[in-house]
Nucleic acid binder design. Structure first.
Lengths: 104, 104
DNA sequence: TAGATGTATGAGCATATAATCATATGATGG
DNA sequence: CCATCATATGATTATATGCTCATACATCTA
């Protein structure tokens, strides 16, 4: 039971990090190799590689070899749905706060 | 732009933790006070209080006073949808791994 | 007003996480 | 075979996180 809770938390934790969010959003447009990803998200190659590896090993991304390159892609469309829902919550929260501040 | 990525990561991070997941699942059935929550999830009062405060300040939970008690409740149904999607991903991943192991 | 009850918070600790630099590994073309 | 390009990984550091114990703070009631 507790194992399941932890497993679910791990999936969400994998998504819940700025650098990894940027990776996921980039891969929304399709498969990319590491050498395309790290300049696109403005992170170090080394750091990007670690995050990609993490996302792959927890099942969020899939990877395949293409000659010398490693191509990463989203494995589950649900991940994008989660992002949308998070954005929806965020929007509602921002509106709520703006109301309080009488800014909007 | 980066601020938005961080804000989205923060919402997800709030959900992506076992103790907080347990709280959220408990509150799926409706409003509860702290003194009901911490025994139900088998955590210390102090620790539970911190997590509740965290979930409230990031907008996942709402709270109100009821006499001496503080009642917490889910603020956005989207949070439950996120949990469902995470479970869906997990299921697919577990099945995939089971296939590999030829267990199922 | 003195307890009792419910909730929050300060301090401390152990562990986890993310980033960086340097280097290793591995595949490819000349 | 060597140089080069693409990716991964070891070591280190700084910071964040989660938990616990003790205590504070409020609110109610006898």
């Amino acid at each position: 039971m507790d194992e399941l809770v932890i497993a679910r938390a791990d999936i969400l934790k994998a998504i819940a990090q700025p650098t990894r969010l940027k990776i996921i959003e980039l891969l929304r447009d399709g498969e990319r190799c590491v050498c395309e990803i790290f300049p696109a998200i403005a992170e170090e190659q080394s750091n990007t590689s670690r995050h990609l590896n993490m996302l792959q090993s927890c099942g969020v991304l899939a990877r395949r070899k293409d000659g010398i390159k490693i191509m990463y892609r989203l494995k589950h469309p649900e991940v994008l749905e989660i992002l949308q829902l998070a954005t929806a919550i965020l929007k509602k929260e921002i509106c709520g706060k703006s109301d309080l501040l009488k800014v909007v």
